[in-house]
C-alpha cells in the first residue's frame, strides 16, 4: 500500500504497515511469538515465578531477611 505522505514519521509508519501486511512466513512467526510471550509473561511469571523476597521479606527489610538466611547456619 503506497500512501502519499513523505514526512519521516509517515515513512516509518508506512515501513511497518506495509511490512506487516505483506508478511508471509512472518505471520506464523508472530503467532508463535505472541503465544510464547503470553505463556512467559502471563502464565509463567504470574503463577509460577513470584518474586521470592517480596513474598517472604517485608518491604525494606530484605537485608535482614537475607542476613538471617546466610548468617544463622
Amino acid at each position: 500500500m503506497n500512501r502519499t505522505g513523505t514526512g519521516f514519521w509517515h515513512r516509518v509508519f508506512d515501513l511497518y504497515y506495509d511490512g506487516f501486511r505483506n508478511m508471509t512466513i512472518g505471520r506464523t512467526l508472530w503467532l508463535v511469538i505472541a503465544i510464547k510471550v503470553f505463556i512467559i509473561f502471563v502464565v509463567l511469571k504470574i503463577f509460577f515465578f513470584p518474586d521470592f523476597l517480596r513474598q517472604h521479606a517485608p518491604s525494606g527489610s530484605e537485608a535482614e531477611y537475607v542476613a538471617r538466611e546466610l548468617l544463622n547456619h
Binding site: I25, L29, K36, I40, P50, L53, A63, V66, L70
Partner: peptide
C-alpha cells in the same frame, strides 16, 4: 528471521528464575 523470532524472550525466563529460585543470590 525465523531463528531470531523463535529465540525472542527465551532469555527472560532466566531472570524469572533468579528472582524465584535464587533470591539470596539475586539480592
Amino acid at each position: 528471521g525465523i531463528n531470531f523470532a523463535m529465540g525472542v524472550a527465551t532469555g527472560i525466563i532466566l531472570e524469572f528464575e533468579f528472582g524465584t529460585n535464587w533470591s539470596n543470590y539475586s539480592y
